[in-house]
Amino acid sequence: MTETTLAPAAPEKTGFLTVATLQKAVAFVVLILLLGFFSLFAPNFAQWSNMVNIMQATAVNGVLGVAVTFVIISAGIDLSVGTMMTLTAVIAGLILTNAGLPLPFGVVGAMLFGGFMGAISGACIAKLKIPPFIATLGMMQIARGLALVFSGAKPIYFNDTPSYYYISSGSVITRLIPGLEVPNGVLVMFGVAIAAAVILNRSILGRYIFALGSNEEAARLSGVNVDMWKIVTYGLSGLICGVGGLLISSRLNSAQPALGLGYELDAIAAAVIGGTSLSGGRGTILGTIIGAFIMSVLTNGLRVMGVQEEWKIVITGIIIIAAVYVDTVLRKKA
């Protein structure tokens, strides 16, 4: 690292530990350390059944984290992911229970509606030039209010669509590999994460998201249709919130219209712990998923240890600050 020549720095040759991999590795190491800690100090923590609990507890936050990661990399923010999840769950309820349509309509309808509402946020940001924080703060309230209006402030149950329950619960894998009981909701989360990672790294949308997040003006002056890609980015976030809405309502077998507030902060925390920069241009889906796992391992572990909820919240806060501090230190060293 400290070669003293005048040759241009060649950071690529400083070894396989580039900052990006180091950051990912740090989050991963923290995850392993937490697992190790709880295995030693929380009785009954280290059991397969509990690992399944943890995975299942990660599903919703992981999916919302992925949604918000796209937006944060584009140098935006989405505060509406939590209530948008609730709104899409209510939409699924309206389609399946109130209108009595078959399952696929509910699934596709919820996701498309989420995408549509997300695109509205995006349009407010791109066309009306409203700062993302404000636009999605407004959308957070709109989605929350609409969820209550559409549902009549009552939960909508999915008893008429028994198969709905299997979106989140039950296990397809068990049928293929007996004994490996991974709930479907976890598979959905990993599916969303893989699709998101492919979109982020391989599609033109992903490339534009990074460009927008790093230098929007340069992208605009390169002839990029900045407004359109912003709308698409927020629309994609809304669409993924739709998946989150399906997961949570399937798990509870009901769309609970009052739920969802505060979930956006957990999602943002997962992304940040996973190394996504709030100033944009930097972040990975894998990081966010690891971040979401860190949060649920922490929560689960502390609960198994019998630590009170209050302290769990305090410790989560400390972890967020520590994660960003480590990130800053690594960045300076690079």
Binding site: S203, I204, L205, F210, A211, S214, N215, A218
Partner: peptide
């Protein structure tokens, strides 16, 4: 500020204005 996305690679900066030409089905890079 206006010419480069400095946090991105040489490859991405050279091709940025032409990305749409280098896609499959207009989606995949």
């Amino acid at each position: 500020h206006f010419g480069l996305v400095t946090g991105m690679s040489v490859r991405d900066n050279i091709t940025m204005a032409s990305w749409t030409r280098f896609t499959q089905n207009r989606i995949w890079m």
